[in-house]
Design a protein around this nucleic acid. Structure first.
Length: 573
RNA sequence: GGCGCUAUGGUGCAACGGUUAGCACGUGGCCCUUUCAAGGCCAAAAUACGGGUUCGAUUCCCGUUAGCGCUACCA
């Protein structure tokens, strides 16, 4: 650790949390210091706290930073938490990525820090630029917003090349002329190098003679590989998994920069490991929160940080999301694209609540957590270390809960959008001008939605089976007619009911109730027979809210009209 | 194969050495009821296995097994 100049350090103890605050040294303008919050639980023994205190020296790194997209100076100087979400546009935004983004966002917002979005598109081959929009849309739908970016790695290649060259100059990297295939499959060690038989145990990863400065091969464009130290270990601290240590002999000499694809170029595009580290340094990322599939990449990145003269940030790896068969979630498990959940009609907040509790828990039994509660409770120490299975039934349960429990005024805009989408929306329903079909009822839309919502599972339910509430053009479900229109007395009953209801001077629940029961009684049938038949007549479904509430909401003119229409159509069906 | 990580009912989480192992989803039953939901009540269902450490292990350690991850000039 370098000399930090004047530096103050304090240890505050607040309940379960130790806060180490390292004040910036005044004489190094570039010196970057910050407070790190460390949970004092079993995952982070106090001996490890030292390792977490992170400072950063940016050196001449700014040189590259100025070339293309650069962070603003103001934000660069900001002290505090900075996290990033870094999707790769090789596919849509899948639920695992969405969860990672959500955790980053919750952490940033909770800590009052900054969220940065970075598109990792360094692989020109698989990269599909048109996918970026879908990813951003998905994030926005989820409510995950960002403060800086999106930055595109494909536009920052000079930065990576500068860093790779620095490693070359350092001796931390080497030019490799080997064909890629030679490394593929791992277990490769240049036979000629086998002079020291078992100096540091068996060598298990590819190590070629280029790393010792093999003369260049004419006509072959080299790649730049990182020169992993022989022997020793690399350790790092993970806020979720604790401390881990990897033997350097297990780490391959990973590629930093691809070889040039054309004659004019000296080198090709950056590889993942280089791009992440360089960007995380340049963007001053303090906490790297990402999927656990990156745990094995971390020692490589730590090595790279050190080679670049920078202390690594805090890592927090979050467990993966699996399908029902406990395999990593993929297309064959059904919907994995978050945008499909939007299209299906899930409420973003319900989806967010569900996702947040997949691999994280605030510690108790509460699980219905609205966004502000999530924001108030989120912490890295609550993150689990075990992979979680994506359980669709539970997600659906969350959605029905939100559909039912949300304050009506929060739900209304969602329903309005749904009805607009399906072409059923009428402007006069808008709040403020909420006149009902009969031009009288002031909160008609809200009342109707409130009546409907206990029976809905997804947003489109409002325009499908509830269609008759919003449109006069609705179908009568054949199965419902089969079930409740079987009795031959039905048309006559419905006709009588229409007559009785038409005479009503007051249109309310009890009036409809009494009138209906009187008709049933006069005809000598059970009220249920008439009620069920009437439901099919006025809303076309066997399933609907309580009949008399439905009548009230639909209005007298409509109910009578639909009853007569049903009588007329009865024989035809 | 090598290396790493993980292991509580079918699923998601609680229980931070002492509980009759808790909550929720799902499942089954009952109640409510005018359909269907919602809601209420009840039930079945778990500490992977084997060794330690300890007065005491779901909890700490080791091994086994299983699952997952990484092992690319993918990210």
């Amino acid at each position: 650790m370098r000399d930090l100049g004047r530096q103050e350090e304090r240890n505050y103890r607040t309940g379960a949390v130790n806060i180490f605050l390292i004040l910036p040294a005044t004489n190094y303008d570039e010196l970057y210091a910050r407070a790190v919050i460390v949970p004092s639980n079993k995952k982070c023994a106090s001996a490890q706290l030292d390792a977490i205190r992170t400072f950063r020296y940016t050196e001449e790194f700014h040189l590259g930073g100025k070339t293309q997209q650069t962070m603003s100076d103001a934000t660069n100087r900001t002290l505090g938490v900075r996290v990033r979400f870094a999707p790769s546009p090789t596919g849509y935004l899948h639920v695992g990525g969405a969860r990672t983004a959500l955790f980053n966002w919750l952490f940033a917002r909770r800590q009052g820090g900054a969220m940065i979005l970075r598109v990792e598109d360094t692989d020109a081959e698989r990269n599909k630029p048109e996918l970026v929009k879908g990813i951003l849309d998905g994030l926005q739908w989820l409510g995950v917003n960002w403060d800086e970016g999106p930055f595109y790695q494909s536009q920052r290649t000079e930065l990576y090349r500068a860093a790779a060259k620095k490693c070359l100059a350092n001796g931390a990297a080497f030019l490799c002329y080997c064909p890629a295939e030679k490394y593929a499959g791992g277990d490769y060690a240049e036979p000629a190098q086998d002079e020291e038989p078992k100096a540091g145990g068996p060598r298990r990863v590819a190590r070629c003679s280029c790393r010792d400065g093999k003369p260049s091969t004419p006509g072959v464009k080299p790649a730049i590989r990182f020169k992993v130290p022989l022997g020793g270990t690399t350790k790092f601290l993970d806020a979720v998994f604790g401390e881990s240590e990897f033997a350097n002999d297990e780490i391959e000499d990973f590629v930093l920069l691809r070889s040039a694809k054309s004659e004019e170029e000296e080198f090709g595009q950056s590889m993942y490991q280089l791009g992440v580290v360089v960007d995380d340094i340049d963007m001053r990322i303090t906490h790297v929160i990402r999927g656990a599939d990156h745990i094995s990449n971390t020692p490589k990145q730590v090595l790279l940080y050190r080679a670049l003269g920078v202390e690594p940030p805090v890592f927090a790896h979050v467990p993966l999301i699996l399908g029902a068969d406990k395999k990593r979630l993929s297309k064959r498990h059904g919907a994995t694209d978050v945008n499909m959940y939007r299209t299906e009609g899930f409420l973003p907040e319900a989806f967010r609540n569900f996702l947040a509790l997949l691999g994280w828990s605030p510690g108790g039994d509460e699980e219905f957590l609205r966004t502000n509660e999530l924001l108030g409770k989120f912490s890295l120490e609550g993150v689990s270390r075990t992979n979680a299975v994506f359980d669709r039934p539970k997600l659906e349960w969350y959605n029905t809960q939100y559909l039912q429990k949300l304050p009506i005024e929060e739900l209304l805009p969602e329903i309005e959008n749904e009805l607009k989408r399906s072409g059923l929306w009428k402007p006069e329903w808008a709040s403020g001008a909420a006149l009902g079909p009969d031009g009288r009822d002031h909160a008609w839309f809200a009342k109707t939605v409130d009546l409907l919502r206990p029976r809905t599972r997804l947003l489109p339910d409002f325009s499908s089976w509830s269609r008759a509430f919003f449109s006069d053009d609705f179908p009568r479900d054949p199965a419902a007619k089969e079930k409740f229109w079987k009795d031959p007395k039905v048309p006559e009953l419905l006709a009588k009911l229409a007559d009785a209801l038409e005479k009503l001077t007051e249109w309310n629940h009890d009036g409809c109730d009494h009138a209906s029961r009187a008709v049933a009684e006069a005809a000598g049938v059970k009220a249920g027979l008439l009620i069920n038949a009437t439901r099919v007549a006025i809303v076309g479904q066997a399933v609907a809210p309580p009949l008399f509430d439905t009548m009230v909401v639909l209005g007298q003119r409509r109910v009578v009209g639909r009853l007569r229409d049903a009588v007329a159509g009865y024989s035809k069906s």
